[in-house]
Design a protein around this nucleic acid. Structure first.
Lengths: 343, 343
DNA sequence: TCGCATGATGTTATCGCTAACGCGGCAAGA
DNA sequence: TCTTGCCGCGTTAGCGATAACATCATGCGA
């Protein structure tokens, strides 16, 4: 049984365009891909026909035949974090001019979801994978290793990657923040962050922070691990809670800027002397929050730059056909703002 | 020429699994898709072999053969807007249990980019399209009309859709906000929003707002259209600017909560009597911002619900094989907060 | 005038998988 | 014992495009 040539609801194929323009399917294909020699007259005819019919090529068939897919899988934990949209911005900025297209998957910080999303995405045979973090399930790790395409793990450089890595050392970021706080003379320090066993970057920051304090002979006075969304309100609540428990605390280190901002607002309203008697710091360098009553101390996580560098690695590999193994460690910069007292 | 059966770098195919497990490719395919009758013994053998080899199915080939693609194209203007991640959340929540997978494209509010992203996405023959807004280029519109798959236009219900529509009336939202403001007795009112000719929803809100004022015999005293990012700082700047130009203004209507929040902070710091002498309102109902010194009046844009309803339409069509034409208009609710004075 | 590179097009054979159908064998009913 | 029907699995024929090669004019230098 061949197709019914008159069924108007049947999706268009190359054959329809070829018949409408009186040339072979191959020639139509060449025109639409701008590849190979086609005379100007033929090209015009074909383009006219394609446009008139409203033909949209079928990339599924194309990809199968050419064994080439212009997609890059991007796997991140969350979109509501303010952090990842910036990374994506950097990625698409670079990919835009390469013919590659990012496809985003969101894991919600679940290793299991990450595994299944990677499986799903790899089954489309993308040209590369950009995935947040170095920690994966064994199955996910082995899938990535055997995929035969460039893999870039981003955001974190504390650990061994599968192929390429672009990130910052969160451990070092934590340690440097600790150093700055200690240098400013704060002594009774608390940490406030999300209760997420699978947010390894926050964990490493905290570890580095604790190490940094230890080097100065200090230890955390208290820490709060909250669950639920990271909004201003949450920042207020946990700040209030921790300061009521330990009124003598003189520094609060938050795991992200949003809750830090909430904490800052609460402290100011309640008459705390910031940064004189109480210092505050967050993490990420979220510039949407510039414009708070006082500029919150934070550390830029190089989000945009990470996206750019990761995408460049993928784009480079996809051009050269080689696989990278590049490691890029970026350096986050402390932005002291107005919530750490100066010497 | 047949393949070289020993090349270890060749990607795995069904044939490899079938040889490794001693059954036909078809049976392997059945096992991996959980479709058709396979004995438990065979199933186990196949699964073992697939797992051992690390086989990942090739969906490209599968999709071509079955004429079925489990992808849903989602086309939105921006990810940094705080609004769209919420919509995406609703979408994936519903799609998660349907075997469908969302694929996101970002237009940056450019109709041209929207057109090319739609072209790109349609070329993968998705099961449906969810696209923000009712305004498209003629070419994009015609592509969508002829795609033969369910199309859901979201966020906006002020206008005629292509197929299904799920959204709110921004014009009405603007008008209702105007009514509330007028009812509270404010008279000298200004609007502050982004300068984006292609943000039709913001435009319609403003139009509705102006209409609403006109009904009460009022007109805008001033309006500011800024460009660049929407952060707290931007909110402060434009608020300062407009209040310096017209010190007698008694209400500021912002086109989004983020700049509204910046404006609120500025007003409080500068001793304005909010909401007594000066009222403020934003739009969106961004709950990350709950926890400001005063709760900003706003209107919930039903973002999450919109995502859910849109995804349900797509999922429904993909099950029934029919195409919808459903129109869902949700009703945004005014949240007066503490920045509109009560009677 | 011939030969041959070159440009413009068509032909053939996949790509990896699945729909649709086919075919033995075994159990239950006649 | 012989059907009948279903279960379990294999065979065949594409899906819609592209790679690679084949074909056929043309033109240009020798």
């Amino acid at each position: 049984m061949t197709r019914t040539p008159l069924d108007p609801r049947r999706p268009l194929t190359l054959r329809d365009v070829s018949e409408a323009s009186g040339v072979s399917e191959m020639t139509v294909s060449r025109v639409l891909r701008n590849r190979g020699d086609v005379s100007d007259g033929t090209r015009a005819k074909v383009l006219e026909a394609a446009q008139r019919l409203g033909y949209v090529p079928n990339k599924i068939a194309g990809a199968l035949a050419s064994q080439r897919v212009n997609l890059v899988a991007v796997v991140i934990p969350s979109l509501s974090n303010l952090v990842f949209p910036d990374v994506l911005g950097g990625i698409s900025e670079v990919l835009e001019n390469t013919g590659l297209q990012p496809v985003v998957g969101v894991t919600k910080y679940s290793p299991q979801r990450e595994e299944s999303i990677l499986y799903e995405m790899l089954s489309w045979r993308p040209s590369g994978v950009i995935v947040a973090g170095l920690e994966h399930t064994p199955a996910a790790r082995s899938m990535l290793e055997n995929a035969g395409i460039p893999i870039v793990e981003i955001m974190d450089s504390d650990g061994k990657g599968i192929d390429s890595v672009v990130g910052i050392s969160h451990r070092r970021a934590g340690r440097e923040m600790a150093a700055a706080i200690v240098a400013a003379g704060y002594k009774r320090i608390a940490f406030l962050g999300t209760k997420m066993p699978d947010d390894h970057r926050a964990r490493k920051r905290l570890e580095g922070f604790v190490e940094g304090l230890a080097e100065a002979g200090l230890a955390l006075v208290d820490s709060v691990f909250y669950s639920g969304g990271s909004g201003l309100l949450k920042g207020r609540e946990i700040t209030k809670a921790v300061l009521e428990r330990h009124p003598d605390i003189d520094f609060l280190y938050y795991s992200n800027d949003m809750i830090g901002a909430g904490g800052l607002l609460w402290c100011l309203e309640n008459g705390y002397d910031v940064p004189g008697k109480l210092g505050l710091a967050g993490f990420n360098g979220v510039d949407l929050l510039d414009g708070l009553p006082r500029k919150l101390a934070t550390m830029d996580a190089c989000r945009h730059e990470i996206g750019i560098r990761a995408a460049k690695i993928i784009a480079g590999c996809s051009q050269s056909g080689q696989i990278g193994g590049e490691v890029v460690e970026l350096t986050p910069v402390l932005q002291p703002g107005d919530t750490i007292r100066t010497q």
